[in-house]
């Protein structure tokens, strides 16, 4: 059973092609690192999977649910984190999480919120408005928001951007825990070492196509990364 099945996903608009046919299956429990240059299509692909952007061709299923037919159902399985945290600055962490819990219609939200605040280490700041938070604290709350509805597929779009060392540690720890709990994770980044840290598999996307997939931490991925991304950057 696949957590994510992408069959020939294309995204074009007028003359512009963002994705030229991405076929990628991710098994349940896999931790996939998706590498690519800026503009290669990795963010577009992730946003399509998160139902934020509509694809022009192909089929994409999340936990067997077609995202075009039943987007609302698919969204229940998906947790999406980018470098923006999508939390309200005028609300405190508890209010923010309570709001999202209501949106998702969670049962017994208070218990879940407390345990999440413990895990991301925001208990002490629980009633301060988010406005005064540092980037790191912000992202910790963002992580709590993503994990709130217990998603089975976690999509992370360049989550390390702008994080301090401490926040990176929290994020890594949360990803390890999620991975150990059998969650499926897809993470995009352009940084090889950060991407490979916890990953079980790696893929490279270039000019809107998957050009390489293979087990993480092998010489092959490093070679492919060097040829596609390093070359791309220098050119």
């Amino acid at each position: 059973m696949f957590a994510l099945e992408s069959d020939d996903i294309r995204k074009t608009f007028g003359h512009f092609t963002a994705l030229a046919g991405v076929t990628l299956n991710v098994e349940r429990g896999e931790f996939l690192a998706l590498f690519g240059r800026n503009g290669a299509g990795k963010t577009t692909f992730l946003k399509i999977a998160a139902t934020l952007v509509r694809h022009t061709h192909g089929k994409l299923r999340v936990e067997g649910v077609d995202i075009s037919d039943e987007p609302e159902k698919a969204r229940r399985y998906i947790g999406f984190l980018s470098h923006n945290t999508y939390v309200y600055r005028d609300l405190n962490p508890v209010e923010n999480l309570r709001f999202f819990a209501r949106l998702y219609g969670l049962k017994d939200p208070e218990h879940r919120i407390e345990s999440l605040l413990d895990r991301v280490g925001l208990q002490r700041r629980r009633s301060d408005p988010v406005r005064g938070f540092s980037r790191g604290l912000h992202q910790r709350l963002g992580i709590a928001r993503v994990m709130l509805h217990d998603p089975s597929l976690i999509l992370l779009d360049e989550p390390y951007t702008g994080l301090d060392a401490h926040a990176v540690e929290t994020l890594d720890q949360m990803l390890d825990e999620a991975s150990a709990a059998g969650k499926t994770i897809i993470l995009t980044t352009h940084d090889l070492e950060q991407g490979l840290r916890g990953a079980t598999r790696a893929a490279i996307i270039d000019r809107g196509k998957i050009v390489f997939t293979g087990a993480a931490n092998t010489a092959a991925i490093r070679e492919a990364y060097a040829s596609y991304i390093r070359v791309g950057v220098s050119r």
Binding site: T51, S82, F100
Partner: peptide, 18 residues
């Protein structure tokens, strides 16, 4: 402005509602 700040609108769009 409140929904655009910090891209909160995206957070709403990710929630399971039409």
């Amino acid at each position: 402005a409140m929904e655009i700040d910090n891209d909160c609108l995206q957070g709403l769009l990710l929630a399971p509602l039409g």
